[in-house]
Design a protein around this nucleic acid. Structure first.
Lengths: 142, 142
DNA sequence: TATTGTTATACTCTATAACTATA
DNA sequence: TATAGTTATAGAGTATAACAATA
């Protein structure tokens, strides 16, 4: 009874946001597993847009892990024929990652499932859904 | 030019939400590392509220992983004296997990850092912050 | 028979450090 | 000297299957 414990809206929003995404971790992992992809393999494939090759370097950045990990993750994607390493024209140290045709097909189905909103969001009123989208657009537009 | 490609608000909101949390994965992992905790150890500690012991069973559920993993995760937390296994009074198969005094202290600092909203949310207008919080409350109140 | 938790196994992810080939 | 990528290593997470104790 001694503490009032008022939580600022921004902090509460962030906590709720972590809870919401965290509670769907298992679903996302299962979605990747349907394509025999580990979570990191799926996240890597998500970041490799067809027609926009990415240096391994930058993939490590967006995945938030060390560059040495990307070697193994890409190895496994490449063995399955979903991704290929291409030489860079300017800098011979760089390896650009490109999705293959098969990789693009897998990626499309993967993203379709991963991006399907969960019940908590789907059940919101159309107004709340638009509100949520608009606020997140503001937050991320920079 | 052949596809109109209209994205429903709910789907776009979920995509942006995944992006926002995903882009802070490294920060969250680093926060855990400051206490020498692996990501899963930190998430487990987050779920163990002081004074509310939790069966290992249920911890596996909220962490979204197999029960066999929880054995190892809790082993490492217990070795460090942050958590302890307690016998259940009713069902002798069950082990209830309780944070120790030291575990509660670590947990408090960990959550204070983890729940600090990132720049994207902190920079929103107070109105948008309240909007985001309110919509997420609706989504999660069930 | 079903459930809780453990163990054994094999695979993936992880950071660190040392290496190569480039720049 | 610095950077891109690889390799080696050790520790942690992961699901599966088999098991013991209990229900």
């Amino acid at each position: 009874m001694s503490k009032t414990e008022t939580i600022a809206p921004a902090q509460e929003a962030w906590m709720l946001l972590l809870d919401l995404v965290g509670s769907h971790r298992a679903t996302i992992v299962a979605t990747a597993a349907e394509h025999d992809l580990s979570p990191m393999q799926a996240f890597a494939l998500r970041r490799l847009e067809p027609g926009r090759p990415l240096p391994m370097n930058e993939l490590a950045d967006v995945l938030g892990c060390d560059a040495s990990n990307v070697t193994g993750i890409v190895d496994r994607l490449e063995v399955r024929g979903l991704v290929e390493r291409r030489a860079d024209e300017r800098d011979r140290r760089v390896r650009n990652l490109a999705v293959t045709a098969e990789g693009a097909a897998v990626r499309e189905d993967l993203l379709r499932r991963m991006h399907t909103p969960p019940a908590e969001i789907a059940a919101l009123s159309p107004t709340d859904q638009r509100r949520l989208r608009d606020v997140l657009r503001h937050a991320l537009e920079r």
